[in-house]
Amino acid sequence: MKSFLKYLIPIASIMMLTTLMSIAENPEKKLEGSWKESVWEYEKVDKNDTKNSDFKHISSYVKQIASQNLIIHKAEKWIFLPNQKLILKGEKTTKEISWSIKGRGNILELKYGNDNIEHYNLTELSNDKLVLNFNSDTELRGIARLTFEKNK
């Protein structure tokens, strides 16, 4: 019994790791494709700024305030290409920048041509939903949340 257990544990561990590796999907691959902005909201805001109870839910207002210094400002559609290029499509504008994923797959790095870099927390990434968080330095201090839906 003891010798059986001695072999069973390493074999089970290897089998479990192999199964997990086959299930695991690289976040880079998951991210590739076209994503549409669905909602902008503040997760954590200074108490004084939340006097207006509707404030948190006014997506366009939050976007306007939170993203005013960011490259993603006028984008509505984000197209992640496999060659680390990201196309930001707005109503009237189209911009091409670079993207990469850092850390354990939890940080999205966006690079402009002029060495400007922005970092976003990849909070959720599934086949049809993408959630990005970032710290906003604007007068509305807080953590902004940006949710996307995948274009099929």
Binding site: L20, E25, R104
Partner: peptide, 13 residues
Amino acid sequence: EIVKGNVYQTLVV
């Protein structure tokens, strides 16, 4: 990561 069910990140960490 285990709690969130992120298999890829769990394996990496």
